[in-house]
Design a protein around this nucleic acid. Structure first.
Lengths: 197, 197
DNA sequence: CCTCCCATTGAACGATGTTCAAAGCATACC
DNA sequence: GGTATGCTTTGAACATCGTTCAATGGGAGG
């Protein structure tokens, strides 16, 4: 029975995820440091590498949580609007995305800052969570544009997500655009409304 | 007369910029290393800090070059279309942006990867170059939407740029979206065409 | 209670950006 | 020209990373 050791390792895993999440929420991905984590978790630096292969995988686990929170918030924004017009639902999702990014800027940025060139060790759930997000967008888009084939709907979904993401990303960046919050809402509404004709 | 020393420092500056640019074009911003540069430039590591306050400012100088190349390519794409409909010109610029990003991926990514939280030392020309890019977009947008006030045109310009940027950024990323090149063109064309009604 | 095995430790390694006392060199003055 | 002065250049040293690994310690089975 390896229960004692196993459970202790699992405890450390979750403790590291929670501490790391707090750090990323507060100070962003670059603030995720091995020695800081070890000090806060009350373990040695080496112990981290027993729970995770490296800091990259810890960051991925934290990003997983952020992704689920994001998905829940976006889903929560459209749920009450099940009967509303598709265009309205699209706008609601776009604004929910902006809200989440505004309220969780550091953690949300970490979703895209993480170095993806590392290799194929991007976990499957990463793509799964992304697809779940796309699912929410696909429904209203398909309703709005029955003239498009499935493939074109798919591209429009990805294009719309990327567009809104770009607006929020550059808008929340201090330097490139620095657009005040209400104007970001208007831009998102404008883009999503025009798509729906 | 401080000509000898001055000119030598300037020589080192341009040499470092050229070497660093080659490195960033080839391997991206993270490959910009002080010791590598010194070895290639045939100087000591300390000499770099005589020509630039730090590597961050060297990277900014290199980004400046990239920015100007980008602006020239986008401008070159609309120039032959001076008489074409505004919508067509918008699409041409969007596709030119995609072209540049595809052909100079590493250097183009460096434009946005550079850490902007450092402070207010973002040079003025950075914003100037960005404004010049926005100028090109503003003209066709204003033509297409005479119903909008100047402020709304401004937001639409920024929103359109951010949208196209988002599509290209995520599209060229290996993991998030991974949309093949022709489909990226179609998405861009789709978004820009629909805006123009 | 002993023994083996694996988890844990933290000093050490290699890489990084940056600094600074020392050395070198060019310019100005006599 | 020679000498003095001040800036430039050097590269070893420092601080800070992520990561490793020999040594240590503690828990499971006999």
């Amino acid at each position: 029975m390896a229960s004692k050791t196993q459970s202790r390792r699992d405890d450390l895993r979750t403790k590291l995820i929670e501490l790391g999440e707090a750090e990323i929420i507060e100070h962003g991905l670059p603030a995720l440091k091995a020695r800081d984590l070890a000090a806060k978790a009350g373990c040695s630096v080496g112990a981290i590498y027993n729970a995770f292969p490296d800091l990259h995988h810890l960051a991925l686990a934290i990003n997983g949580r952020t992704f689920r929170r994001l998905g829940a918030q976006v889903a929560g924004a459209v749920e009450p609007l099940a009967e509303a017009p598709a265009c309205e639902r699209l706008v609601a999702m776009g604004l929910a995305y902006l809200d989440f990014a505004s309220q969780n800027t550091a953690a949300w940025r970490a979703l895209f800052e993480i170095d993806m060139a590392v290799g194929e060790d991007i976990p499957g759930w990463y793509m799964v969570a992304l697809e779940a997000l796309f699912d929410h967008i696909r429904r209203p888009v398909a309703e709005l544009r029955p003239d498009l084939c499935a493939e074109d709907v798919e591209f429009l979904v990805r294009g719309l997500f990327s567009s809104i993401h770009g607006i929020v990303w550059l808008g929340l960046q201090k330097r490139i655009s620095a657009v005040p919050r209400p104007e970001l809402s208007r831009m998102i509404t404008l883009i999503l409304s025009e798509i729906g004709q």
